[in-house]
C-alpha cells in the first residue's frame, strides 16, 4: 500500500509521543497532587478567615482533578473517562463556590465577622 502522507505524519507523531510521552513518570503527577491536597487540608483546618477556607477547598478539588487527569492520560488513554469526570468535578466546584460564597455573605451580615472561631453557635 502506498504511503499516505497524512498517515505517515500521524505515525511519526505517534512515534514521538511514544518516545517522549513517558518522560515524566506518573508518580510525579501523583506526588504534586498529594502535596497540593495536603496543603489544602492544612489550610482548611487552620484558616481563621472563612474565604480562605473556601480557597483551600478549591485547592483540594484541584488536586483531585490533577489525579484524575494523570490517570486518564497514563492508564486510560483511549477512553478518557478521567477527563470527563474532571469536567463534572469542575462543574460541581463552580456550583459549590457560588453557594459557599453566598452562605459566607449571609453569615457575614448576621455575625459581622468572618472569623471561623466565632461561628460557634452549634458548639456544645
Amino acid at each position: 500500500m502506498s504511503a499516505d502522507p497524512i498517515a505517515v505524519t500521524r505515525n511519526a507523531s505517534e512515534a514521538v509521543t511514544i518516545a517522549f510521552g513517558s518522560s515524566i513518570p506518573l508518580q510525579a503527577y501523583l506526588a504534586v497532587a498529594a502535596l497540593l491536597f495536603c496543603t489544602g487540608v492544612w489550610g482548611l483546618i487552620n484558616s481563621r478567615n472563612a474565604v480562605r477556607v473556601l480557597m483551600s477547598i478549591e485547592l483540594m478539588l484541584n488536586a483531585v482533578n490533577l489525579n484524575l487527569m494523570a490517570f486518564s492520560d497514563y492508564l486510560d488513554g483511549q477512553l478518557i473517562r478521567g477527563q470527563v469526570f474532571a469536567i463534572f468535578v469542575i462543574t460541581v466546584a463552580a456550583a459549590e463556590a457560588a453557594v459557599g460564597l453566598a452562605i459566607l455573605l449571609s453569615l457575614y451580615r448576621n455575625r459581622e465577622t468572618v472569623d471561623m472561631e466565632r461561628f460557634n453557635l452549634l458548639r456544645w
Binding site: 509521543t17 513517558s22 506518573l26 506526588a31 492508564l75 488513554g77
Partner: peptide, 15 residues
C-alpha cells in the same frame, strides 16, 4: 503512589 504497580504503559493517549 510509589508502591502500587500501575498498569503502565497503558493504551496510547488519543492526544
Amino acid at each position: 503512589a510509589f508502591t502500587t504497580h500501575w498498569a503502565l504503559p497503558g493504551p496510547q493517549p488519543v492526544g
